[in-house]
């Protein structure tokens, strides 16, 4: 147990055993995937048409938003180049589905249907449609186990979107609560502030919404205020998540270290 906890020597064994266990996962999931399949196949034409219309309009709306986003992203990259800061290029994502399986009720973990065969590796961030979901902790060739951001042993570096205040959001073990650690009593943080990932830990990409502050209780008798937040991601409802590869990570670091030396060279190019 200690070997697994501290040194990860047994990861190979775990992953080999997971493959043996896979049929169990598969069978438990079977009624649910069969239900989904039936639902997909026995849907009426009218419903499909209605859905198609809805998706079409949504798609148009999102595309319109995307246009603005792309121009903003280009502008952002240009400005970052001017500042010689590391640049963030689009992340690569892969959609994965959750297995309908209850793991241990005291830790918040889920099993997803993508593994090292799909280039998933340990410590990879997961997102759902609304925000940061969790990260992968064990990877096997065909599936991986992910820890949600609300797991008691999980913490994610965040930033208050409004003020830029950095903090760490730790899981509490309850699905709708995160604790913000070490926020001074006089910090500028209010109920309703959106917390985005700050990217400082190197695991989660920058700028994805994580949670919304729900409670701020300054306690003058204690060094830090009690701040609680509610995760944005629908941790107990999502069936599909996105696995994210952060683009150009090593490249970023190279730029960051080289930045001083090349500052003069880059500026003239940009002005053209």
């Amino acid at each position: 147990m200690t070997m697994d906890h501290r040194h990860h020597y047994l990861d190979g064994l775990r992953s080999a055993m997971s493959i043996l266990i896979y049929p169990v996962h598969y069978f438990v999931n079977l009624p649910f995937s069969a239900g989904t399949w039936m639902g997909d196949n026995m849907i009426s034409r009218e419903e499909l048409l209605a859905q198609k219309g809805e998706l079409n309009s949504q798609n148009t709306f999102l595309k319109a938003q995307m246009q603005k986003f792309i121009s903003l992203e280009i502008e952002n990259m240009r400005l970052r180049k001017l500042l010689d800061a590391s640049q963030q290029i689009g992340d690569k994502v892969l959609a994965a589905e959750l297995f309908a399986i209850d793991l241990d009720p005291f830790s918040h973990k889920v099993l997803i249907n993508k593994g090292s065969r799909h280039n998933v590796h340990e410590g990879q961030p997961l997102l759902d449609a609304d925000g940061v979901y969790g990260q992968t902790i064990y990877v096997t060739p065909i599936s991986s186990t992910a820890m949600l951001i609300t797991d008691p042993s999980h913490a994610i570096p965040v930033q208050v979107n409004r003020t830029g205040l950095r903090a760490i959001a730790a899981g509490t073990g309850s699905m709708d609560k995160l604790d913000l650690l070490h926020i001074p009593n006089n910090a500028d943080i209010r109920v309703g502030d959106v917390l985005v990932s700050s990217g400082l830990g190197g695991v989660f990409p920058v700028g994805y919404p994580v949670a919304e502050v729900t409670e701020v209780t300054p306690d003058p008798s204690q060094p830090y205020a009690v701040v609680k937040a509610k995760p944005k991601a629908q941790l107990d409802r999502s069936r599909e998540v996105l696995i994210v590869w952060q683009a150009e990570h090593e490249h970023d670091e190279a730029i960051a270290t080289d930045a001083k030396g090349h500052a003069r060279k880059q500026l003239p190019e940009l002005q053209q």
Binding site: L10, R14, S18, I21, D104, L111, T145
Partner: peptide
């Protein structure tokens, strides 16, 4: 117990013990 640990994604060996 080992199988259960792998199945539930726990620390390897806790159920085994």
């Amino acid at each position: 117990g080992l199988v259960v640990d792998v199945l539930e994604g726990n620390l390897l060996g806790q159920h085994a013990l």
